[in-house]
Amino acid sequence: MRWASRLKDADRMFLIGALLLALIVLASALAPILSSFDPVRGTSPPMRAPSAGHLFGTDNLGRDVFVRAFAATRLDMMLAVVAVGVSLIVGTLVGAVMGMGGRSKVSGFLNLVVDSINAFPFIVLALGVVAVVGPSVPGVLSAIILTGWARYARVARARTAVIADADFVNAARLLGYGRSRVMIRHVFPNVYSESFAFALSELVIVILAIASLSFLGAGVRPPTPELGAMISEGRIMLTRAWWISVFPGAVLALAALSIQLIADGYERMTRYA
């Protein structure tokens, strides 16, 4: 009984999340194309409250906040997917090596690196990387990847240690498969599926982190439309023109929520299915 109701819950969460995400993706794909407003150059009267012509109003430079917000969402999502993808692949590979390595010196060293990177507050270490690379798209990407891979490595390390003990891996060894074959064809694919579920939930954290860095002025810089940077830009006008900050914030929260729902639903579905 409880199992069934949970499964239904998970399905519902996944569905609502997916619908919400589809809407956001659709809007961010279409808004810059269909709208006549330019996301970077202002052509309308500045600081106009939301109306039929400008759904989210206009900012201090006369740019349409709706078009800008969804152009920004597109950028944030793409950055997040790339960052998560790269850290997922790198981290999972390293973690798998660590999990297989047992007590070798290499895996001992990697363990140390992974644990000490994870000891830091994520955003703080990311800020450190941005300091060197510079506040820019490559800066944000390398900050997130350099600090993020270690979390996947931790997940993959634990999972690999379990898989490496499974009987199908023992069978593979008994059949005389080489180390790399055992690793690539038998251990890695099974570690990967769990890491993927983890990556979905990380996507939320990473989107928020990208926006956070840009909000702090240590990420994507204006005039490029980016949600965190937009919220930051609108801050000083909060009392006079709340929509400049609040709408991008709402879009960011909705995007994060939709992915969160998908991730939670997916996790529960795979756990109870």
């Binding site: 199908f168 023992n170 099974n190």
Partner: peptide, 18 residues
Amino acid sequence: AATVQMIFQDPYSSLNPR
């Protein structure tokens, strides 16, 4: 490999699910 092979107890972990 051609000398000895093994059949394991747990059918659910002795095959690669992938």
